[in-house]
C-alpha cells in the first residue's frame, strides 16, 4: 500500500479550516486550560493533583474532541465520501487524528505552563505522554465511530470519562483489592505512575513495565479502531 502524505495533509488542512469556524470545539479546548490555571493559582502543583491537568487535557482534547470531530463526519455524511475515496484506512485515520493530536499537545503544554507543573526528564515524559496521546485519540475515534451524532458522543463517552478520567480520584475510596489492581492497570494510572516515578528521580529501567502496559493499551485500541472503522463502510 502506498502511503500518501498529501492525502493526510489534505484532511488535516480541511479540519484546520473547519476548526476556525467551530466554536463548540474551540470552547471545549479551553476547559483543561482553565482547570490548569485554577490549579496553578491554588499552588497545588506539587501534590497528587499535579498531573491531573495533563490527564484532563488528554481526555478532553485527545478523546472527546476527536470523538466529536469523527461523529460530526458521520452525522453530516462526510465520512462516507472519505471512505469511498482512494484514501486508505491509515491515511484517513491519521489525517483525521492529526488536528486533535496537535491541539492536545498544545493544550498539554499550556496546562503545564498554567499549572506550574515541573516536567521531570523531558524525553521520558514526552515518550509516555505521546503513547498516552495515541491511546486517547484511538479511544476518541472509536467513540466517534460508535455515535451517530455529535450529541451522542457525550453520552457514550461518559463511562470513558469516568473510568479513564476519574478512577485515580476514586482509587483511595476503593477497598476491594482486585478492583484496585484493575484500576492500577488503566492507562491513566500507568501514566501517573510513570510521571510520579520520574518526579521521584526514577529512571528508564524503573518505568519499563509501565511503558510496556501502556504500549499494550495503545496496540489494543489501535486494532479496535481499525476493525470498527472498516465496518463503517457499509450501511
Amino acid at each position: 500500500m502506498i502511503f500518501s502524505f498529501k492525502r493526510v495533509n489534505a484532511i488535516f488542512i480541511k479540519d484546520w479550516k473547519d476548526l476556525q469556524r467551530n466554536s463548540y470545539i474551540l470552547f471545549t479546548l479551553a476547559i483543561p486550560l482553565v482547570f490548569a490555571a485554577m490549579l496553578g493559582r491554588m499552588n497545588a502543583a506539587t501534590d497528587v493533583l499535579s498531573t491531573y491537568p495533563i490527564n484532563l487535557a488528554l481526555i478532553i482534547a485527545g478523546a472527546f474532541i476527536q470523538a466529536a470531530m469523527v461523529a460530526e463526519e458521520k452525522e453530516k455524511n462526510t465520512l462516507r465520501g472519505l471512505l469511498l475515496s482512494p484514501a486508505s484506512t491509515l491515511e484517513i485515520l491519521i489525517g483525521k487524528s492529526a488536528l486533535s493530536g496537535l491541539m492536545t499537545i498544545l493544550v498539554i503544554i499550556g496546562s503545564i505552563i498554567f499549572s506550574g507543573y515541573t516536567v521531570p526528564s523531558l524525553p521520558l515524559f514526552s515518550l509516555s505522554t505521546l503513547l498516552g496521546l495515541v491511546f486517547y485519540l484511538a479511544t476518541g475515534t472509536i467513540l466517534g465511530l460508535l455515535s451517530r451524532t455529535v450529541m451522542e458522543t457525550s453520552i457514550i463517552g461518559m463511562p470513558v470519562l469516568i473510568i479513564f478520567g476519574m478512577s485515580s480520584m476514586f482509587k483511595p475510596m476503593v477497598e476491594n483489592a482486585t478492583l484496585i489492581n484493575i484500576i492500577e492497570l488503566l492507562p491513566n494510572e500507568q501514566l501517573n505512575q510513570i510521571w510520579f516515578g520520574l518526579s521521584d528521580g526514577k529512571g528508564a529501567a524503573d518505568i519499563l513495565m509501565n511503558l510496556f502496559i501502556l504500549f499494550l493499551w495503545v496496540a489494543v485500541s489501535f486494532i479496535l479502531t481499525i476493525v470498527i472503522y472498516k465496518k463503517r463502510r457499509f450501511d
Binding site: K14, K17, D18, N22, K76, N77, T78, R80, G81
Partner: peptide
Amino acid sequence: DNSGLYERL
C-alpha cells in the same frame, strides 16, 4: 443522498 459536504467550509 448520503454524499455530505463540509458545512463550515
